[in-house]
């Protein structure tokens, strides 16, 4: 059943492939310095699916940028398989929230992009790209341009492109946020299927409780600003999972518990946003 653990860096086993250690991120704003992420520590085991969930403004995306190496100024340490990293690392493949396919490349050329960077021969990289296109269920669309595809299909192209680089860790920042609920659930199934097939270590940043419970082994619940680890919840649901699990009683209990944790934080965020809007009537909330 529910087995929340203490929000410390000691809560995972020592064979962690990804270690996020005491990360603190501060931003300077016109209203003064803001601590976006405050002393966050995580450990992710090989093959594990870990989600980080929190309300808007809890520093989730900042944490995504820190782990992905896109943010330079922070205190703390990120290491992959024991090696401390500073900056983007080939072991970490990122899938972004915004639509990020290259509109000037066909689906095959998009997916083959990371292989092209390695200098792989054209015939070989097309073959590899087709394998990953099939994996995300886009066979038949190899020669289409992203402009001809739906939002969900484009996100699958982005996922296939990242998987083609064969990262040790798949890092995703709300990849389905712009999609409707049904598509999101079905794509969740696809991600789960791929993750289980490839035994892919995955770190998902999300604000969607259903998505997090549907896919994760553990869920890290973050507090509203400054973003801290509030609780880590182990999701003890059977695998392999599909979206059908959302109707189960156990699923509902996990959702309820995480919402109970999140509700207080989301309310705090909403109040803060209202206060900010009142004090900056023209600019609105940031």
């Amino acid at each position: 059943m529910l087995t929340p653990t203490k929000p410390t860096s000691q809560d995972a086993t020592d064979d962690a492939i990804l270690v996020v250690d005491n990360i603190v991120v501060r931003f300077e704003t016109p209203e003064g310095p803001i601590v976006a992420v405050d002393d966050v520590s995580l450990k992710v085991k090989p093959g594990e699916f870990l989600s980080v969930i929190g309300p808007s403004g809890c520093g989730k995306s900042t944490l995504f940028n820190v782990v992905g190496g896109l943010l330079g100024h922070y205190n703390g340490k990120v290491s992959v398989a024991g090696e401390t990293i500073a900056g983007p690392h080939q072991s970490i493949g990122m899938v972004f929230q915004e639509e990020s396919t290259f509109p000037w490349r066909t689906v095959t050329d998009n997916v083959a992009f990371p292989l092209e960077l390695t200098g792989m021969a054209k015939a070989q990289r097309i073959e590899r790209a087709r394998h990953f296109i099939a994996l995300v269920g886009l066979d038949g669309f190899e020669n289409r341009y992203p402009g001809e595809l739906s939002g969900g299909m484009r996100q699958r192209v982005s996922l296939a492109r990242t998987l083609a680089s064969e990262p040790k860790i798949l890092l995703m920042d709300e990849p389905f946020a712009a999609l409707d609920e049904q598509t999101r659930l079905l794509l969740g199934d696809k991600v789960l299927q791929i993750q289980q097939q490839l035994k892919q270590t995955t770190l998902l940043i999300t604000h969607n409780i259903t998505e997090a419970v549907q896919m994760s082994d553990r869920i890290v619940v973050m507090t509203y600003r400054p973003g801290k680890v509030k609780r880590i919840v182990e999701i003890d649901l059977p695998r392999p999972r599909t979206s059908e699990i959302v109707g189960s009683e156990a699923f509902g209990r996990y959702v309820a518990q995480i919402w109970a944790d999140l509700r207080e934080e989301a309310s705090r965020g909403m109040r803060d946003e209202e206060k900010h809007t009142l004090s900056h009537p023209k600019g609105g909330a940031s």
Binding site: G69, E98, S100, L117
Partner: peptide, 21 residues
Amino acid sequence: RKVLVNVGRSFNLTPSQQFWK
């Protein structure tokens, strides 16, 4: 779009690759 630049950064592109690709 910044996200395309970030995709390039995530794949560790050199400045020249970032420009041409």
